[in-house]
Design a protein around this nucleic acid. Structure first.
Lengths: 357, 357
DNA sequence: CTGAAAGCGCTTACAG
DNA sequence: CTGAAAGCGCTTACAG
């Protein structure tokens, strides 16, 4: 009924517990034949070593935690998938945990991950650093932030995207198509400095291309009504194009525009951050500023692995490490003196939602 | 540097380890004042009990594993979110693990979950029952299947949707709108009996409404080219409407139709299983057969909890249990003699992708 | 090549 | 009201 233990395996094999342990882990000096015998019996018994018990001795679980704000967000789901994929290649399992964009749950979830004594955790933080996040950083738990930064935690390595290149391409495109009045809907700024930076970059680039009066910026709270309000602001001030910094807002906005029977490509050119499948399939297909998630996932995986004190990584899973080589193909790595910060340039992908004015 | 242990807390508090343990767990007879003192010190030290060590004594981790085939699939992401939400309410943490639609990874992931000695696991299985899945069932690990069944594992409780009501509504709608020739693209049948059942139900209902020659069925392998082929089959035989049993195929098909500049609502009425946001936002918005994920998530959470031997469930998290009451509002529960099988009726949601012929 | 022993961090009777 | 001891399932020196 309960789990088979190493003792069960030892008894069945007529060996000592230590001999079994060593056979299983490829340590010590065990004859090949007994080793194979042990493996066979373990398999028969469906023996699964208790990770907790093992970790008490080795402080190593082969498991990484990944906390995302909301797994329903296609962007995070995609990123999570890519991270777990890269980690799996490297012999690690990824435990994904979703925080429902509720900051209070973030800590409960993080604690649970810590309780499993995972080897490291990758966090897409929300809001400012929480108590548990700080505790982890202080204690030296391998920890990195991906996609978003948390205020006041500037020593945690960060892997995010650089909004500049994509934003620049996007705005130049708009200008060259004749747009003179552009809006930016920046999302719930409180959630992440990433969103604030996008707004900042927008303002900065737009200032060179458009007249000050023709630049409209509105933020939201991430809910539908504030999104509607922001959209109205932008349209009332007769912008001919709008860029969204936060893709859930974009989704809401599309919905709102449909309800009002407005046709985006005619009435308002639209560009959004986050290259999710949905945007590609819309009519018109949406132009996006892509964060190159494929790269981000790979680098995030490599980033956390680099922080984990090396074990004999010749583990169970199919431990090939193509990860390392691939990660090399990245465009921008910034080592500042105080922090490891890897930035992946955004790229603009033009589709049908942007028109000539 | 490493984790604070219960011993650290005890030393700082000037108490025995046992006293601390009891204070933390609300067991034994401890004065309120020392209890509060312990709690305070634990907080200060950021003490997080080692779940593995604890589980060795209690065989209870407060953690449930959830295995999904592919978290990038919006349908699974949504379901995963709902399950974790319901479980969190009940005081449990959910560890989500994604199998990349690769059966070989399923077992590795499952083993990792078992190694954590989680209290139970919810699986959306792919293909037939794997070795580890069977081992779990044999051993009596709390285990339920959600959304899909696994062949040959008929004793594991199953929570899925009943395709009949939604399919019936959908086909009647098509018939009443004048469609005489309808297609069904059933997806990669090997992946799940659920898909095969949808096809079966389609055939059965369609047989009453259309002539045998006017019913076209094609399956896919879940990849783009086979989807293209299936679509061609359906269109070549001049169907005026098609129902998709597997939503990733629908997404591919939309993409293919766009490339060919075909406008779904004029050339081909489309209905798909899975009520995902994307379908609502497409132009035209897609009519769907919904599985009522909100209910499924709730019932799945309740289902696994029912299988777990009861502990003192007055745990840390905000342990309200609205779950139970809500789950009662479910429409169909089928207790067969050999198995607990809960079916949630599908419902047809009409949108713009279905037109009169 | 293999076994006995210690100890990781916990909880739970059991004494006091 | 509180402490000492046993033991959960492992791994790792250390003897043999």
């Amino acid at each position: 009924m309960p789990y088979a233990t190493i003792r069960d395996v030892a008894e069945r094999a007529g060996l000592s517990i230590a001999a079994v342990s060593q056979s299983l882990n490829g340590k010590g000096r065990i004859s090949l034949s007994t080793r194979e015998k042990v493996l066979k019996i373990a398999e028969e018994l469906n023996y699964v070593p208790d990770s907790g018990a093992r970790a008490m001795r080795t402080s190593h679980t082969g498991t990484i935690g990944l906390l995302v704000p909301d797994i329903r967000n296609a962007y995070f789901a995609d990123l999570a998938y890519r991270i777990q994929d890269a980690l799996f290649q490297a012999g690690y399992s990824t435990l994904i945990v979703t925080a429902s964009e509720q900051v209070n749950r973030q800590d409960a979830l993080l604690k649970n991950l810590l309780a499993q004594r995972i080897d490291g955790v990758i966090v897409i933080p929300q809001g400012k650093g929480s108590r548990t996040l700080h505790a982890m950083a202080d204690r030296g738990t391998p920890l990195i932030f991906v996609d978003r930064n948390a205020e006041g935690m500037s020593r945690v390595p960060l892997i995010d995207s650089d909004p500049f290149p994509g934003m620049q391409e996007a705005l130049h495109e708009l200008a060259s198509l004749g747009h003179r009045r552009v809006g930016f809907i920046s999302g719930p700024l409180r959630k992440s400095p990433t969103l604030a930076e996008r707004e900042f970059v927008f303002r900065r680039i737009a200032a060179d291309l458009f007249e000050a009066d023709n630049i409209v910026v509105a933020s939201t709270h991430g809910d539908r009504s504030s999104c509607e309000k922001a959209l109205r602001t932008v349209m009332d001030r007769s912008c001919t194009a709008v860029i969204f910094g936060y893709s859930p807002d974009t989704v809401q906005a599309i919905d709102i525009l449909r309800e009002r029977k407005l046709r985006p490509e005619h009435d308002l050119s639209i560009i959004s951050f986050d290259d999710i499948k949905l945007f590609e399939l819309l009519t018109p297909s949406l132009s996006v500023i892509s964060q190159q998630l494929d790269k981000m996932g790979l680098i995030a995986a490599q980033g956390i692995l680099d922080l984990i004190p090396q074990q004999s990584n010749s583990d169970d899973n199919n431990a090939s490490t193509g990860t390392d080589a691939d990660a090399k193909s990245v465009d921008a790595v910034v080592h500042s003196s105080t922090r490891l910060h890897t930035r992946i340039p955004t790229v603009f992908i033009r589709r049908d939602s942007v028109r000539t004015v």
